[in-house]
Design a protein around this nucleic acid. Structure first.
Lengths: 356, 356
DNA sequence: CTCGCTTCCGAAACCGGTTTCGGCAAGAGC
DNA sequence: GCTCTTGCCGAAACCGGTTTCGGAAGCGAG
């Protein structure tokens, strides 16, 4: 019972024009009289005409659709925010008449294969690449294929890259200064995923914070590659078993920070008392941990919206160098950080006593 | 530097055939000689030919793409599972050469407008509808438009509907029996969102469980419409302030169950001790609450995969009555439920004493 | 040998748009 | 009054596929 769509020819017939004239009138060609253009636009609106994007695509090569490939085998911090991220992306995109095509892949090889397939089938005019690595094969693939893309994050070789990113390094720096302000003198660091670009930046931010606070960087106080609670627990235990353990730890990712709660429990330490913890990401689990996890929150919805905006501009031909945005994370003050109740030496004794 | 795509004409020329022959060979027409078909298929594979789905769509009217519209203003339990859900959807879809088009909308009016736009622009051949209501305007819209769809959940008027759903009612029933098995005699219930179809079913499951356990249903022990921690806290407090409070509460949604932790803390009750709690959904926050929340978990990835499968079948013309699947939820045993340490009367005294 | 029936493929139309090209009419220039 | 622009639109090709239609072979039957 569905009525036939109204096509461009329907509009043309109704006006006594040809479809070529209607098409040019609607697409802003300058060889159409102003009065005609207005008549066409009015009639198109009145008849409810909407061009079929895939019909346009076959001639123009533009699908008016953005591509996003999710990697299904990594349980990263972005997952709880995916709904917001997608809301931002699609909200901004649909405002401009664009759609979002989502695919998923397992592993790096799968990711590249999926991207190639989407490019080959021209399912999208450009791609959003989250979770950027320092050296990112997706970037190389898209660069070589000449397909527009925009990064959620930065990368090692910025040539030809547009991006939106949150200043994780500034958050790490601020976290160290905040802890130093509490009176902590030994502040540990548990870094994020190996190869990830954010890991490099956040680590630098931690070091910058130490320098600014007048504290010496101690390599023994720095761990890396912890992105799950289990890894975070192991890293925290290793730090706490040092001769001079940290009284506070900054985590590059919240998931790892949650592991500190287990480690602290094992040694009979109170989070926000004997051990202060600050995370990054703002995952909802952090609000339900006890005490609540102090962390830096990222506005994923805004990130999605900005990325859609940037990618559409990129597809329209704006130079990538002009499409780079950086914004700060926002501190969520909760209860996992406070002035130390024990100095490092006292903490070491307590830990040794409780270490079974 | 991108090389031109290989088109159907390229394949035809290479074989000395016309593109019409190649097209029919590839699409299984029976007026093509078996030998020719094989030659065509082999050459197409060798040349890496992939038809452009939007070029096909203009003639066939099939985009080979599934549509999903997310509602951005509801913070439902599905959100943490969205990544899994999408992975399931796209994994299954891409296996059959289909893509997923995602859009978002705010409010019911926005949802319907977005669906209409997607239908009008033919962005998808069919739609997945999560979060079904008893009377669902999306169903009415799609039914009237003659567009295929499949529900994640059931609905009041099943006519013309295909669906995949988890047996939430069975989980509620099992939760009651489990608590009764612990020795609880007064078991409360906090139901889910008004108008949602699952709320009706889970409530019925709770009542069925009571009956089966030989316990009388007490209307005073049943609350409704709690889907956030705050609402869950309020509902729990109301139940606990009864003259004969429940010693255990079953929650239709985990988010509300988390609120019970706050309510219990206020009255000085231990979860899994003076008050037992069982939830439903399996959200990750439940694992980080202390004690861990016993709940029923839904495999969102599988749900996505099955829904994609069902929808593709539906689009291909299978009758909706043959496309209905129901599966059980899986119990996650944690520490929030146990035998009662106080009977209802004793509990009431304790609560009265602690109620400030 | 002819006729009729299959089998198999080419030619051409078609889908809904975009873009190129050419031409008519009106106005400008002389 | 004639040419030369310029403005504006129609005709037709095109994009990459699908589908309809018709006809040339090949084959068996009479």
């Amino acid at each position: 019972m569905r009525r036939r769509r109204v096509t461009i020819s329907d509009v043309a017939d109704r006006l006594g024009l040809t479809k070529s004239t209607v098409s040019r009138a609607l697409n802003g060609y300058d060889d159409i009289a102003e009065g005609t253009r207005r008549r066409v636009e009015k009639m198109a609106r009145r008849m409810g005409y909407r061009p079929l994007s895939h019909a346009q695509a076959i001639r123009t090569g533009r699908t008016r659709s953005l591509g996003l490939v999710l990697q299904t085998d990594v349980h990263d911090a972005h997952r709880p925010f995916l709904a917001d991220f997608l809301a931002g992306l699609t909200g901004e995109a649909s405002g401009e008449g664009w759609a979002l095509t989502v695919a998923s892949a397992e592993g790096e090889a799968g990711m590249l294969a999926t991207l190639e397939r989407l490019i080959e089938e021209h399912k999208a005019d450009g791609f959003i690449l989250p979770r950027t690595r320092v050296r990112d094969p997706r970037v190389e693939l898209l660069r070589a294929a000449g397909v527009p893309f925009v990064l959620y994050g930065r990368t090692g070789d910025p040539q030809g890259c547009a991006w939106y990113d949150i200043l994780g390094e500034e958050a790490m720096r601020a976290a160290v200064l905040r802890l130093a302000g509490h009176g902590h003198r030994r502040i540990g660091y548990v870094g994020g995923g190996a190869g990830m670009n954010y890991a490099l930046l956040r680590r630098a931010g931690y070091l910058a914070g130490l320098g600014e606070a007048g504290l010496a960087a101690d390599p023994a106080l720095m761990c890396h590659g912890a992105v799950t609670p289990e890894e975070g627990r192991a890293a925290t235990e290793a730090l706490l078993e040092l001769d001079r353990p940290p009284t506070a730890i900054v985590f590059a990712v919240d998931m790892a920070a949650l592991g500190a709660y287990d480690a602290a429990a094992r040694f009979g330490l109170g989070i926000g008392r004997e051990l202060s913890v600050i995370g990054y990401d703002g995952i909802p689990e952090g609000a339900w941990a006890r005490p609540g996890l102090t962390t830096y929150h990222v506005d994923s919805r805004r990130a999605g919206a900005r990325l859609a905006h940037l990618l559409i501009a990129r597809i329209r031909g704006v130079a990538p160098e002009q499409l780079r945005e950086l914004e700060p994370a926002r501190l969520l003050r909760r209860q996992s950080d406070a002035p130390p109740v024990l100095a490092s030496a006292g903490l070491a004794e307590r830990i040794a006593a409780n270490n079974t």
